[in-house]
Design a protein around this nucleic acid. Structure first.
Lengths: 144, 144
DNA sequence: ATTCTTGCAAATCATTTGCACTTTA
DNA sequence: TAAAGTGCAAATGATTTGCAAGAAT
């Protein structure tokens, strides 16, 4: 893809965060950056398995957990029993379509999602805005 | 929803929603309305069990699911593996303290959380704003 | 050689399900 | 007596853990 998504670039990103850029880790992060579908661990595993047969789900979980701890991805819990991951850690909202199940990004009025502020005396460090409804596409093409 | 918490009032609320106001259901809803701590199903079960020995967790799950379907409570998925319930269905934000683990309500600038609107062509019907950080209380009394 | 990475298999744990018992109308 | 409510026990399924084998430096 583009140069910012080159394996070399990703490799550098990981090194900067103190993560050894192993092949599996690079592929998992690359997948997350190229697929803005906010996949679950299972989706990532299923897709990458086609390409990388010797890949275990444990490694996917291990890698995601590591990326999360180092702040290079974020976890979305828009729905119970469906933890999704997003390589874009900039503040933005997420919309889940109840028809097609897709989760899409949404630009949202900044003040709301600005982290690192104090509200009512509480120190806020993280913000998630989750919207649900029917997406543009499903509104146009109703199922059934 | 009635403002007072009389059993009679709750009973009427349930009937209006087409839910038979059984003893267990009334106690579960009453607990949710009196305890603004956004408890999990397990917390509700553990607490109510003290009072109502013949109560099974299945009944708690059944009742919560039913209330949810009829729109008299809402589900909070601020954290994975910790689905919480809130009897207040008006738009408001939720803050989870990473120190004490408590989830507290927060009044939030209305436009952000107004449901039933169209954003970027998508029909929004539900909004959740989840904040994380350290609460006022834990800032004052740091642990250890 | 030691440390890091990977991965199988078993453990965990919240939630769901099947079904039988009990209560209510 | 049919329908609704309840609850035990088993099933489910995503995630975690323990540990051993393989890879990297």
């Amino acid at each position: 893809m583009s140069e910012e998504l080159s394996i070399d670039g990703l490799s550098e990103d990981l090194k900067k965060k103190g993560i050894h850029p192993s092949y599996h880790r690079l592929k998992i992060l690359e997948y997350l950056m190229q697929n803005k579908t906010h996949p679950t661990a299972d989706m990532i595993y299923k897709e990458l398995s086609k390409e990388i047969p010797p890949l275990s789900k444990t490694t996917v979980y291990n890698s995601l957990k590591l990326f999360l701890k180092r702040g290079i991805i974020q976890e979305l819990t828009i729905e119970e029993k469906e933890v999704r991951y997003d390589a874009d850690t900039r503040p933005h909202a997420h919309f889940k379509c109840t028809e097609c199940g897709n989760v899409i990004d949404m630009a949202i009025e900044p003040p709301t999602l600005n982290p690192e502020r104090v509200v009512e005396g509480h120190k806020v460090t993280e913000c998630h805005l989750y919207l649900k409804g029917v997406c543009k596409n499903c509104l146009k093409n109703p199922k059934k």
